[in-house]
């Protein structure tokens, strides 16, 4: 039973890293295409569009953070043998779901929003600050999911 608990705990870490990372990869890819389009015509805007392209990258970092905490919790980091019961393993998996799922969706959406904001910078570089705010709004929900995942994983008694 403890092996199955460990499996679900590990699955939780994998879900957090995998889905949030995939969301970021999609988002950074979409924004990257838009950034490349702008730089093709106007290389001077490289710095501004690079910042907008990087915004959807944070979901992957949040997933990685939750993944580390989870691995540490189940004892896979640090070498200590921790017995994880099946209910505990399932609870850890559930705790990792928020950042995994929200990370995937918000990462892609933030990339799309960043691509639109890159369009603003392309036409009105002086509006860069405002253009940053639109994709930053999407970030709010990734942060909320991160908080819940961290609080939940940290407070599950092992």
């Amino acid at each position: 039973m403890s092996e199955l608990g460990m499996f679900f705990g590990l699955l939780g870490a994998a879900v957090a890293v995998l889905f949030a990372g995939a969301g970021s990869a999609l988002g950074v890819g979409i924004a990257g295409r838009a950034a490349a389009g702008v730089v093709t015509e106007d290389p001077n805007k490289f710095a501004q569009v690079l910042i907008l392209q990087l915004l959807p990258g944070t979901q992957g970092i949040y997933g990685l953070l939750v993944g580390f905490i989870t691995l540490s919790k189940i004892g896979l980091l640090g070498g200590g043998n921790v017995a994880i019961s099946l209910p505990t393993g399932l609870m850890i998996l559930a705790a990792c779901l928020p950042i995994g799922i929200v990370g995937l969706i918000s990462g892609k959406s933030q990339g799309q929003c960043s691509a639109a904001s890159i369009g603003i910078v392309a036409k009105r570089p002086d509006q860069f600050g405002k253009a940053m705010l639109f994709p930053a709004m999407v970030e709010t929900y990734a942060i909320l999911a991160l908080l819940i995942s961290i609080l939940a994983v940290s407070n599950i008694p092992v």
Partner: peptide
């Protein structure tokens, strides 16, 4: 539609001209 992201971003710059 998202395949046009690169092209649309280029067009946004060209529209300024």
């Amino acid at each position: 539609d998202w395949e046009y992201t690169y092209a649309v971003a280029r067009i946004r710059v060209l529209e300024t001209k």
